[in-house]
């Protein structure tokens, strides 16, 4: 087995567009849960909405890149309103159930055979990447060093994705040090208290839901840019993985979601590579290579449990300001 290869691909994951998408989606739930205390379990739905609202107009109406991105953002705002209007006045756990249900509705709808002409049904959509690659400012060639050697297109999608992540982080930083952030964090602590101080709690929760949802939809765009749209990717499991990343890094922190996503992606690749490597070297003999793919998900589940029990504030969280017990 080739240890170098395993570590190289794990290191490559660190900057991959998928990791950037995970990070951005995690920043989104960070706004929801870490700052505003909203239990959004439908981030996969926001990502699906973002991806499809980007891809469908591109394919059907030849939208330019900027218009497709706008369409993605608008669709997620609309989706946030649809989710928020019935649930933001209710108890927190209702939002959890409604968001998870809505994300599943989105997945069922895009997968239904009746809409195959538009959504591609169960096989998804592809061939929408030309508007993006056409804007590639990098000349052909090979860039980078070590495990991070990219073609011009690979570099362009990474630069684009991580730029969005950085912009989102700056936006969150600016908002959370402002009085707006103070109100939102107050709502996380006790929304009745904030209401009694004359703040329109409902409006603030809606704004937070929209903001995190827009991040989710842009994450959905980054997620599909280098490949095709696969509806099966947007199952509830995706949401749970993003939650794991967020909690890994620390929910109410700026860097937490990004580092959490990076650690998650690297660990996922590394553990998979290691187990497969050990199998191919006949060191582990009792696991088939199909089963090897399953072991890492068991690890994710166990890590999530242990993390929440023993280090709820995540890697970056303040021990005092436990980012939990909303």
């Amino acid at each position: 087995m080739d240890w170098g290869q395993i570590f190289n691909s794990a290191a490559g994951e660190l900057l991959s567009p998928v990791t950037a998408a995970y990070a951005l989606a995690a920043i989104g739930i960070g706004v929801h849960f870490g700052y505003a205390g909203l239990l959004n379990f439908g981030q996969a739905g926001f990502m699906a909405i973002g991806a499809y609202a980007f891809v469908i107009p591109t394919l059907l109406f030849d939208f330019p890149l900027w218009a497709a991105l706008l369409s993605s953002v608008f669709a997620s705002i609309l989706f946030a309103f649809l989710l928020g209007i019935p649930t933001l006045r209710l108890r927190a756990d209702y939002l959890a159930i409604v968001t998870i249900a809505s994300a599943e509705i989105v997945r069922y709808v895009v997968m239904t055979t009746g809409l195959t002409a538009i959504t591609g049904g169960a096989s998804g959509l592809s061939g929408f990447n030309s508007t993006f690659t056409a804007l590639n400012p990098f000349a052909d060639g090979s860039y980078g060093f070590g495990p991070w050697v990219f073609t011009a297109n690979q570099l362009w999608v990474r630069v684009f994705g991580w730029s969005l992540v950085v912009l989102a982080s700056i936006l969150v930083f600016l908002l959370m040090r402002s009085p707006w952030g103070r109100v939102v964090k107050g709502i996380r602590e006790d929304e009745d208290a904030v209401r009694s101080l004359g703040k329109n709690v409902y409006a603030y929760k809606m704004q937070a839901l929209i903001l995190g949802g827009v991040f989710g939809s842009l994450a959905g765009v980054i997620y599909v840019l280098p490949r095709s749209v696969q509806p099966t990717n947007y199952a509830t499991t995706l949401t749970f993985f993003i939650w794991t990343m967020l909690l890994l890094g620390g929910a109410a922190t700026i860097l937490g979601p990004i580092v959490g996503a990076m650690i998650f992606a690297v660990l996922l690749t590394l553990s998979d590579g290691l187990i497969r490597g050990l199998i191919s070297a006949n060191i582990i003999t009792f696991i088939s290579s199909t089963q090897a793919g399953q072991v890492r998900f068991m690890i994710i589940g166990a890590v999530l449990m242990l993390l929440v029990i023993f280090r709820p504030q995540g890697i970056f969280g303040n021990k005092k300001e436990l980012s939990f017990n909303v």
Binding site: D190, V194, K199
Partner: peptide, 16 residues
């Protein structure tokens, strides 16, 4: 009491 536990005392006041 509904003091906002994970905000500082001053932040609590400013919210008012």
């Amino acid at each position: 009491t509904k003091s906002l536990g994970r905000l500082s005392v001053l932040q609590n006041m400013l919210l008012g």
